[in-house]
Amino acid sequence: MNRGMNIVGGLFGAGFGFVLAAGKLHDYDTIHATLRFESFYVFGLMGLAIGVSLPLLWILERRGTETVYGGTLSLSRSRVERHHIVGGVLFGAGWSIAGTCPAPALAMLASGATYGAIAVVGLFIGLWLRDRQLMTANRAIGEGDGERSTLPGTKTLGAR
């Protein structure tokens, strides 16, 4: 189970990285041309990715599809809270300044751009800083609807 999931994770990660690099989403110019409205590329790509996955996930959820490793397929829909806005503003600013986002930064490094490593290190520092801040304050770290740290029913998957 554990090993199978690791392989699945590696494969899906590879597919993800492949599409990002093939679409040059790891390229500063691709991101900035879109953000300056000189190109439609990133908007079109994200729009179609959502356009394909949203209806399919909706249908699969309604059918109560059983997944291979994670029980019945379940989608999460959270209410909007303040931290979504605050985090969104910070993330958007950083995204524009660094000209890359978390997954494309890895693909950038893989394409041979050494400064991709600086972006990856910076991301680690930023994520860790927030973790540390919340841990010091003894507050729970909330995850968004696009992130899940556990598989249903297997709370500590991968732990010894």
Partner: peptide, 23 residues
Amino acid sequence: VVLLGAIVMGYGARVAGGCTSGH
């Protein structure tokens, strides 16, 4: 610039609970 931008981005992603792919 890249380092500072990436730190702000990482911090913001953790506050918001996701990034461009997650959210």
